[in-house]
Design a protein around this nucleic acid. Sequence first.
DNA 1: CGCTTATATTTAGCCGACTAAATATATCAT
DNA 2: ATGATATATTTAGTCGGCTAAATATAAGCG
Lengths: 141, 141
Amino acid sequence: MADSVDCDIRQSLDRISSRMRRDYSESLREINLYVGQDNLLARLWSGDGITQMQLCEHLKCEPPTVTNMVKCLEQNQFIYRMRDEHDARVMRIFLTEEGKALEEPVAAKWKQQQEKLLESVLPEERLLLRRLLKQMESNLC
Amino acid sequence: MADSVDCDIRQSLDRISSRMRRDYSESLREINLYVGQDNLLARLWSGDGITQMQLCEHLKCEPPTVTNMVKCLEQNQFIYRMRDEHDARVMRIFLTEEGKALEEPVAAKWKQQQEKLLESVLPEERLLLRRLLKQMESNLC
DNA sequence: CGCTTATATTTAGCCGACTAAATATATCAT
DNA sequence: ATGATATATTTAGTCGGCTAAATATAAGCG
């Protein structure tokens, strides 16, 4: 009985996230981005010139994932890479003007997605929901 | 203000799902499955002999995705395919004994993941959470 | 019957994510 | 200074997910 509720929660989370990813992916194609690249750019919008390792930590993914994303973003002229002057192992990532210009449209898409997701969820329910999600997040660590 | 709460919710969902997927993927490797294949098998456990199109609809993914998953599962001897006798276009998917045998260990892993995710979330909170998630799910359709 | 259209699946190719292994450079200790 | 170890990144290869296009078969219609 309790199990079926829990299972629904887990499956529901799964369905929501895959559906969000799918819709969001489609939406990002309008501005020539692939899903996930917006998060990488978001980190750079709050300060660029960081290393790939720092991006790994922020995105919570492995180095090869960052290598590939960065390569794709570089080919599309949204970022450029420069070798660190003091440590020749590290690459530092910078935004191009095109990359900076994506901040506004991406913010708009985030807002749009949030509003669709939380339509008809009351403010006090949102607060509670956030608390429960945070709790689940910490459970996974 | 309300925006920041909403944004947290969206991002929190993102972090939870990617973390779950990651942990779960690792866990499934113990029984020679890849993440997502358990859902495909779950559909077969409730009745096999269905077509790839039916799997598509159930998994809410595109035909090439099913083609690849089915190929992988077939190579690992968890399923086998037979061409429909009345319609030579369709392939029907069946469980092997090895595939059937995975039902128990997968159920155990689901339960384990659920318990970890919902640890210290009270029963009444779980009910509310489920209601809110269902609402969000329907918002996305 | 033959032609067109619809349906089921596959192929090719791309991106995000991963692991394992290779490469390049730094650093540390002897 | 040299050799061992640590760190940053890349390469190769896998799977889940996708789109676009190819293939194969069915079904409908004149």
